[in-house]
Nucleic acid binder design. Sequence first.
DNA 1: TGATGATATCTCAACGTTGAGATTATCAAG
DNA 2: CTTGATAATCTCAACGTTGAGATATCATCA
Lengths: 166, 166
Amino acid sequence: MGDAMDAILEQWARERPDLDTWAMGVNGRLARLRHRLQQANRDFYAEHGLENHEFDMLATLRRSGAPHRLTPGALLKASMVTSGAITNRIDKLEAKGLVERVREAADRRSVFIRLTPRGLELIDGLMGPHVENVSRLLSALPPERREEFDASLRILLESLDDTSIH
Amino acid sequence: MGDAMDAILEQWARERPDLDTWAMGVNGRLARLRHRLQQANRDFYAEHGLENHEFDMLATLRRSGAPHRLTPGALLKASMVTSGAITNRIDKLEAKGLVERVREAADRRSVFIRLTPRGLELIDGLMGPHVENVSRLLSALPPERREEFDASLRILLESLDDTSIH
DNA sequence: TGATGATATCTCAACGTTGAGATTATCAAG
DNA sequence: CTTGATAATCTCAACGTTGAGATATCATCA
């Protein structure tokens, strides 16, 4: 059979046989796979009234543990967007009543973004179905390949300095 | 050592030990890896005055073979964005003199987007360095792992119906 | 105490994408 | 021919992100 990238690499082989295709293929497949997964995740989140990034932010707060609050700065580092986007996203989630801004006396430059009871309940109820959904999306990979695949991804990420969430 | 995703999965293991983490890990690593690669590619393209998507469109036209022209519809299908974005991108590349709109008598609903001589020269000169750059970015993956890694990506893409560029 | 630099968050103009609809052209059927 | 359906491209308002700068607070030290 072959995927879309096979067809693309065939074109390159015809037009520019001097180019080595392995890296191009992996680069393209990673882009396409990420895109497909993101679309599929978006469909799932939409069933529950959430945007992709809204789910991400709620999940980040949830996995930080009680009392389920982080500063915008911490949320920024945990994300892959810039500060303006974080402010905007917090605004939207606050308007939905899923998080709230809490100022503490300690350092008044800072704000805590805290899951509301509703936000906590929502994300806690969604994590199980989300994991099931992602598992289903990746279920085509034979079990005996899974460990090596994940390990390869980790090797690449470590080499690109993706080594910390702090 | 461990990558950023290891730290995230550790948090989940502490907070929600009931969740199976393999699929979440792969999903997150694919997102992060794609993001890192896209950033690195962007830096490379920027050295040559191109945006990420501009390089993509020029490369799509180049690999289609002489006479290096495709309709906006074909460029749309080859991309992962919507029609408004395609029109906008063509406008920008046309303003830079790298592609031109050509109407043919055959079907006047259609337009061909054709690489100009400058556009062809630019993308042809860039493909070699681009492949070198991507190869370097992926060089941490041991050679004996590469074939299986690529094959696993293909398995996943085929299962998600990413099977055609037409 | 006051000055200086660092830190945390927010602001906002510029820009790109989305996606439904408008426009124009072609094709098929009667 | 007309009519209606289909097709290809473009338009544009709504929206989100970027990224530099503004604002406010804190820390340090003379």
